[in-house]
Structure formats: structure tokens, C-alpha cells
Design a protein around this nucleic acid. Structure first.
Lengths: 165, 165
DNA sequence: AAAGATTGATGGATCAATCTTG
DNA sequence: CAAGATTGATCCATCAATCTTT
């Protein structure tokens, strides 16, 4: 059908036969960066599989339940929720659709602003969250936290804070 | 249509009204783990967008070009390639389809084993890889490596190695 | 039968366009 | 018109089933 994207892009970058001034990653740099990518991939894959296996609940859905369970009145505006779980608006809309279909979440109108909608966690949602939380926390501890010293945890926290600022 | 997954799963975990013996994450633990997730999400999102914007080349495709460019003869078996970029077999098949359609990769039969196929990077693929590599490395340095001390890089490398073993 | 690769069905995410309310 | 949310089209990944070669 299409495929024009790459072809088009190739045209705009003609003629750079000049030498490449790119220093490759050093061994240490590669270990720091590549390991980061690989560790994330393996951890999230394992944790997601674990939750799906035990409760049919993917990791992203768990994150949504987590935010709502922590929020006052168990509810949040759709936009805020989307931001907090790093999902697009439309992505969250459809995720909430799914969670609502299984009764873990309901939608409520927002009193102060008729445009807004609230996602609210149901009692069933809270119950599943509590159970899944046990599994999930155990997994995070076993695969991640328990393999780090307190010192290393502090170093990591400092690093993430710097990267995200 | 269906939705039976969650409902079914809820049934199998009846009756755990007992107290939850789950200690929540401490502040430091949360910072180490949550920051890890968040940093990964933001970094890969930005790096992917950068490559797509400049070359129409998503990050996963770039990774494939990288592996092939480094491999002897610019070629790898489909299975090995799939493993090395952490993709399922079928996922890789379709990704190679796309890359072949734009001329960055070709498929070749494997001489020693008629079952196998080789993915081979083309000259056009190498050229795009070189260009995209500059962009990508610069991005990784700017957003990640340059914000870490050498010491921190070493600590990270040690941690990833431990997590992945 | 097992291994390598592909295909069909489906899940889950995105962007762009749209609808409603402020 | 701007903001909140949803819908339509599409992209990218997975699992399960299949086909070929060993």
C-alpha cells in the first residue's frame, strides 16, 4: 500500500560521504546503557507474564488500579490518570473501557466540570488490586530490590531523579 | 464477545480475607524501582521519536540494523536475530518484512541448513544505519551517559549484570 | 518428532479527526 | 476557540497453528 516513509526520508539526507565523527560507545558505556535496556525488557516481561498468568491482569492495567487505589475517593480524571501512567489519552480511554467491562472500574461524571470524566475503582477492583499487589510486589522484590544493596538503591534513585529533571 | 479471562481468574482466588502480609515499598525502594520504569519510558520514547522524525526508522528497526551491521558478513539467522533484539520469532519475521520492503535488508537462504534463512543488511541499510547511528548515539549520550559519572556507569553495569544472571 | 520460519487472529498502543462542554 | 474525552485508521507485537526441512 504505502511504504513511502522511509523512502522519502532517505532522499532528504543525500551526500554525507564525509567521515563519520561518531565515537562508538566504550565498553563501560555500552554495559551501562545496553544493560539498562535489557534489564528493563526482561523485568517487565517477567512481571507482566506473572500478573497475566495469575490474575489475567496486564501490568499496565495493574498500574491504573494502583493509581486509583491510592487516589482520594479512588478516583481520578481521565487526563490526569493518562499522564500518571504514561499513556496517551486515547490509549487510556480504551484501557478504561476494558477495565470497566470486567467491573474493576466505573466512569463517573465530574461535578465541577461537565467535560471531565472520573475513572473510579470499584470494590472488586480494590480486591483484585490487593491480591495482585502481593504477587507483584513479591516479584519486584525478588527480581530487583533484593538484588540491590541499600547503597545501590540510593545511587539509582539519585540517577533517575537526575535523568528525569 | 468474551471478557471471560478476568472473571474466570477472579473465581480461582476466593476467600483470602485474611490480613495482607504485604509490606509496602519504602520511599527509597519506590524511588529506585519507580524511577527505573519512568526513566526507561521517557528515554526510549524520546529516542524513538527522534529516529522516526529524522529517518522514519523506529528504535526496534534501528536495533536490528545495528546487530546486522556488527555481524560477520552483515548477516544473521532469523532466530538468532530475534533472540538478540528480544523479539518473538513472528515479530521479527514481520519486522524484516517491513525492512525488506524498504530495501534495507534482504533475505538469503542458508547454505548449511535449508530450513534457516539469513537476514542480510544491504548497502542502503548500512548507510542509513551510519546516519541514524550518529543521531541515536548523540541522543543516548545527551540524555543518559553524559548525565552519569564514570563511577555511576560502573555501578550500573555491575547492577545490570547481577539482575540479568 | 523437533527446529526454523511464516501466517492468521487478536491485543494493545498511537495519531489525527471529531464531538461536547467551558 | 481551548480543553476533555472518545472514535477511526493504523502500526507493531504476541500466541497458536501451519508448513518445510532435518
Amino acid at each position: 500500500m504505502d511504504q513511502p516513509v522511509l523512502a522519502a526520508r532517505l532522499d532528504c539526507v543525500r551526500n554525507d560521504t564525509a567521515a563519520a565523527p561518531v565515537r562508538d560507545l566504550s565498553g563501560e558505556e555500552l554495559a551501562a546503557w545496553g544493560g539498562f535496556l535489557r534489564a528493563h525488557a526482561e523485568l517487565t516481561r517477567a512481571l507482566d507474564a506473572e500478573l497475566v498468568e495469575a490474575y489475567g491482569l496486564p501490568l499496565t492495567s495493574y498500574e491504573v488500579l494502583l493509581r486509583l487505589a491510592r487516589a482520594p475517593a479512588g478516583s481520578m480524571r481521565m487526563s490526569d490518570l493518562a499522564d500518571s501512567v504514561l499513556l496517551s489519552r486515547s490509549g487510556l480511554t480504551r484501557l478504561i473501557d476494558r477495565l470497566a467491562k470486567t467491573g474493576l472500574i466505573t466512569r463517573e461524571e465530574c461535578q465541577t466540570d461537565q467535560r471531565g470524566l472520573l475513572a473510579v475503582i470499584t470494590p472488586a477492583g480494590r480486591q483484585l488490586f490487593r491480591r495482585a499487589g502481593r504477587t507483584h510486589l513479591a516479584g519486584v522484590r525478588e527480581r530487583f530490590l533484593d538484588r540491590l544493596s541499600e547503597d545501590e538503591q540510593r545511587v539509582l534513585a539519585r540517577i533517575w531523579e537526575r535523568l528525569l529533571s
